Computed example of a mutant assay.
Amino acid sequence: MKKFLKIGGIILFIGLVVGVIAYFGKKNSQENQVYEVTEPFVGNIEVKAVATGEVKPVETIEIKPNISGVIKSINVSEGQFVEKGQLIAEIRVVPNVANLNSALQSIRAAEIQVNLQQKEFNRAQTLYNQGVIPKADYDNALAAYQNAQQTLRQAEASYKVAQTGVAPGLESYATTRITATTSGVILDIPVEIGNMVQEINNFSTGTTIATMADINKMIFAGKVDEAEVGKLKEGMKINVSIGAIPDKVFTAILDFISPQGVASNGVVQFEIKAPIQLDSKYFVRAGYSANAEVVTSSASNVLLIKTAHVRYDENQKPYVDVLKSGSGSDATYEKKYITLGITDGVNVQVKSGLQKTDKIKIWNTDLEKPNGPGPH
């Protein structure tokens, strides 16, 4: 008897467990069949390509010397506006001993010739005054004496140039005076007084004494990924946002797209450039970091839905489930294939297959609920 009671209790327990599982299974099944719905909406959509880069002058000029030496003085400061021809720095020439010695020997040789020709001239002048020699001989002696004097002056000038780098009487044209080649703002002065500088020639790029530019002409220079560069065309309008000026968006016109990409961290990027339309209310400094947005395609007053509501079949054809009848757990849905247009990542354009009054099943209802899975 006890054995039968024990068996009966086990059977009863198993039945209760099966009943509980069936109850909750049915309940969960019913709850999972309840979906929220949404409707398409009419609006505008833009697809943008984003580039990161910096703001810099259209042209940057490096001021370099035509003679080697030591910086004697610096007459401007960074950030200062200078006019074309204004003095930037002066260089003190460090004499070359060999050249200096050669110039000194030339002076001594010229002095000897001057003394010799002076004696010849004095003798010719005496003889001419006595009527011994013709005037032609006197004129030749005078010319030889004057030529010797000129040779001495040239030798002295050459010595002065070898010593100081400046020829007497030509101080205003001296290469030791470094002047601005154009008007603009001094961006950088990488040298200091006392620094050695190298002249620019066929064998050396020379030492940069100052960098300057016209900061009223700025461009955005940035890079875009290879996936976006094919959508860009010269002449496109660009909106430039500068990190240091958060409340202002500048307009630029794309005028350069690099024909060659550069690989960086496994991604190929292409350089772009666009002159910026500056606003006199804002002072834009060279080197500001900036981001640019380029509208590659857009559509106005078109039918839109959220990209999250679109599903794809095994052939990657897009579709949505549209409410056919009923509501709640009694709702029935039908599959509607749709033709998509452009997307900005959040919304997508629906070209055909859907009406504005259609109600679309929201598949990710559970993820949107604040209190966990299931309808609330």
Rank of each mutant, 00 (worst) to 15 (best):
L232H: 07
F220H: 10
A221G: 01
K248E: 15
I209T: 04
G230K: 14
A227K: 09
M212R: 11
I215N: 10
A244K: 11
T251V: 09
K233V: 11
I219A: 04
F220I: 12
E234L: 12
T211M: 14
G235E: 07
I245W: 05
I209F: 02
E226H: 05
T211Q: 15
A221H: 01
I215T: 15
G206C: 01
G243A: 06
G243K: 06
P246N: 07
K237Y: 01
T207Q: 06
F250T: 06
I238L: 15
I209H: 02
E234S: 12
V240K: 02
D214N: 13
D247I: 03
G230N: 15
K223T: 14
A244Y: 05
K237P: 00
I245E: 12
K223P: 00
N239P: 00
G243E: 10
A213K: 05
G230E: 13
K231I: 00
G222I: 05
F250V: 07
M236L: 11
I219E: 15
I242C: 09
V224P: 09
N216C: 08
K223E: 11
V249K: 13
I238N: 05
D214V: 03
I209L: 08
A221N: 08
I238Y: 03
F220Y: 11
M218T: 11
G230D: 13
G222E: 04
E228S: 15
A244C: 10
I219P: 02
G235H: 09
G235N: 10
S241L: 11
T211A: 14
G230M: 13
S241N: 15
V240W: 01
T251E: 14
K231E: 14
E228N: 15
T207P: 03
E228Q: 15
G206V: 02
K248D: 13
T207M: 08
F250M: 11
D225V: 06
